[in-house]
Design a protein around this nucleic acid. Sequence first.
DNA 1: GTCATTGCAAAACGTTTGCATGAAT
DNA 2: ATTCATGCAAACGTTTTGCAATGAC
Lengths: 141, 141
Amino acid sequence: MKVLKYSRQRESIKASLMSRHDHPTADALYASIREEFPNISLGTVYRNLNLLVETGEIKKVNCGDGADHFDGNVSEHYHFVCRECRQIYDMVMDNLNTLSHLDSTAQEYAPGIIDSHSVLFYGTCKNCLEKNKEKGIDKPA
Amino acid sequence: MKVLKYSRQRESIKASLMSRHDHPTADALYASIREEFPNISLGTVYRNLNLLVETGEIKKVNCGDGADHFDGNVSEHYHFVCRECRQIYDMVMDNLNTLSHLDSTAQEYAPGIIDSHSVLFYGTCKNCLEKNKEKGIDKPA
DNA sequence: GTCATTGCAAAACGTTTGCATGAAT
DNA sequence: ATTCATGCAAACGTTTTGCAATGAC
């Protein structure tokens, strides 16, 4: 296994991600890190995010919008992705009824060993539903 | 709604995807379509795949390897993604115990209206487990 | 002193788009 | 005749990479 050396940049990237409750892209994170490290490069942000994913300190979320999103919350949870505003929401669910149940069922059918999973729900979030109502739009685009 | 005109290319792309049991990328599909239509362009393949997704005739699967994969099976099912060989397997599961259960639980927590979902399991598939055993590797990389 | 990490820029990758031509209705 | 679809190539957005310089140990 690779030996990691300390780096202020990596520390700052991790701290910045941990302090957020959204699921920023590398570029969004880059923008906020630059306030502290004006000379940091986007490549460094990508390299460190990938390192942190490898060590399991953060998670990568792929919601299908073309960009990787990152999540400082490594506990098992689902995500809800709004098709209109593209925001990603955490969905904390009852493990007993959902995740663990899903896992045990999956084990029976999976053609191998499962070590992790990604559960995404797509739809229209409450905020967008309200905005649509205000504009007099009954059905979401 | 947009009116679609018939095109031999689109028909062939759909037929080609339907005949496969894997989950090819646009590029892989492009390679096999080229046997029938040597002059077809990759752009046309992408355009038609997106049209077919819009009309609900096929599905897009995002397994996090950077490329979109396409699925001719539009019935609700899960996917198992092998981290070693990158292959995507269909997981046909008992709806009563899993998908519908998951959906009803999700509705309680989701911050809006859910219209679809993506469930991916990651791990090592049976084939790779066997190959690893043959090579004398006990634990997967 | 060694080797990981950085900043920079270029390249790679998958996907989309503009445009003139061709095909379907 | 109209309008959508095609092939081609260029452009796009995201991520990775090669390299010389810097920093951690």
